[in-house]
C-alpha cells in the first residue's frame, strides 16, 4: 500500500462516488459558470455575514453531493473539512447540522487535497462505506481576514489573486462510479523563504514542484502518464515559476499542465490579475470541470495537486516567510 517515500497506492481503490460545487456571482460569470451545480448571485447567500454565507455554501455542497448519490448524512461515516478562516469556523458552523463526525482540517488552499487524501485513506482502510470531503472559501471573509475590509480603496498588484467564493464537496466511498482515487502523495512543507503575501503563486510553486516530482518518482511514472497534472491555484505567475523549477529538475510538464486558478476566471474580462485562489478554487473546479472529464473517459488518469500557503496574519506581520504545501491525488477513469 505505501509507495515510495510519501505516497500510498490503494489496493482497493475507493470511488469518488459524487461531488457538488457551489459558487458565487463572479465565478458564475466565469468560464465555468454553467458547470457549477449551484450559482448564487447574492454573495451573502441569504445570510447576515460573509462567514455565515461561506458556511451555507459548505452545507449546500455537502447536501447536493450526497443527494446525487442518493446517500443520506447518517450513512456518511466521517467528514473531513476545512477552510481559510481562523479556527476553521466556516466549516464548523457549516456542517454542524449534518451531524456527521468531523475532522476539522487546515491546509490553506490545499485543503481539498488534504481532505480527499484522508477520506480515501479511511475508505481504503475499511473505516467506513462513505466519507465526505469538503472545503470552501469566500472572497468577503478572506479579504477581511487576510487583507483589507471590502470598502477599502486600494490597488492590487498584478501578482495578486482573487479568492474564489465557492465550495466543493466530494463523496468518497465503496459504491461504484466512473472515477477511482487510486493513489495519494502527501506533501511536506516547502519554504523558499519568500515573504510576499501578495504573490502566493511564487510562494507555493516550490511545494507543487516537490509533490509532483515525489509522486512521479514514488509511482515510477513519467509526466506523460497523466492526461493532466492540475495544480490548485498557482496562477499565471506561479505556473511560470513551476515550469522553470520542474525543468531545473529534469521534468517538462508544459504540455499537460493545468491550473484551477487560471481556469476559473477569465483573466481578460474579469480583472483577476494572476488568477483565482482559495480552497474553493481547486474544489469547485475539480467538481465542475475536471471530474466530468474523468467520468466520461476523456481523461483517463489525472494528478490533482492543490497547493496551500501556510501563513497567518500574525506570522506575516512578525516577519516570517510564507511556506507552501501541496498534496497529490491520483484520479483514474474506470
Amino acid at each position: 500500500m505505501t509507495k515510495g517515500l510519501q505516497s500510498i497506492a490503494f489496493k482497493e481503490s475507493p470511488y469518488l462516488v459524487s461531488s457538488a460545487s457551489v459558487a458565487g456571482k463572479k465565478e458564475g460569470e466565469g468560464p465555468l459558470g454553467k458547470m457549477f451545480d449551484m450559482v448564487e448571485k447574492e454573495d451573502l447567500f441569504g445570510e447576515n455575514t460573509w462567514e455565515e454565507a461561506e458556511s451555507t455554501m459548505q452545507k449546500e455542497a455537502c447536501l447536493l453531493a450526497m443527494g446525487k448519490a442518493h446517500v443520506e448524512a447518517k450513512d456518511v461515516r466521517y467528514l473531513f473539512g476545512g477552510d481559510l478562516l481562523r479556527q476553521g469556523v466556516a466549516t464548523s458552523m457549516g456542517v454542524s447540522e449534518l451531524n456527521i463526525p468531523l475532522f476539522g482540517l487546515f491546509g490553506a488552499c490545499s485543503t481539498s487535497g488534504e481532505a480527499l487524501a484522508l477520506a480515501s485513506m479511511s475508505v481504503a482502510a475499511g473505516y467506513g462505506e462513505y466519507m465526505l470531503a469538503v472545503t470552501s472559501s469566500h472572497f468577503g471573509s478572506a479579504e477581511k481576514e487576510f487583507r483589507f475590509p471590502l470598502g477599502y480603496a486600494n490597488q492590487r498588484p498584478l501578482s495578486a489573486q482573487w479568492t474564489v467564493t465557492g465550495s466543493g464537496a466530494f463523496l468518497v466511498g465503496t459504491k461504484r462510479s466512473h472515477v477511482r482515487i487510486t493513489g495519494v502523495t502527501v506533501g511536506k512543507i516547502v519554504d523558499y523563504g519568500l515573504k510576499d503575501s501578495q504573490n502566493m503563486g511564487a510562494c507555493m510553486a516550490p511545494a507543487a514542484c516537490d509533490t509532483i516530482i515525489r509522486n512521479l518518482e514514488d509511482f515510477g511514472r513519467k509526466a506523460e502518464d497523466y492526461n493532466r497534472i492540475i495544480t490548485g491555484d498557482l496562477g499565471y505567475v506561479g505556473q511560470s515559476i513551476l515550469f522553470d523549477l520542474m525543468r531545473g529538475k529534469g521534468y517538462d510538464i508544459k504540455k499537460n499542465h493545468m491550473d484551477c486558478g487560471m481556469t476559473i476566471f477569465d483573466q481578460m474580462t474579469q480583472d483577476t490579475h494572476a488568477g483565482g485562489s482559495g480552497c474553493g478554487c481547486a474544489a469547485t473546479t475539480l467538481s465542475a470541470y475536471i471530474l466530468p472529464k474523468v467520468e466520461r473517459g476523456e481523461w483517463k488518469r489525472v494528478l490533482f495537486v492543490p497547493t496551500g500557503a501556510l501563513m497567518s496574519t500574525v506570522s506575516y506581520n512578525e516577519g516570517a516567510s510564507v511556506p507552501g504545501i501541496a498534496h497529490g491525488i491520483v484520479l483514474e477513469h474506470c
Binding site: G24, K25, K26, D43, G140, E143, P149, L150, G151, D271
Partner: peptide, 8 residues
C-alpha cells in the same frame, strides 16, 4: 447606513 459590498 451602509453594508459591506463585494468587489467586482
Amino acid at each position: 447606513m451602509f453594508d459591506p459590498k463585494m468587489k467586482k
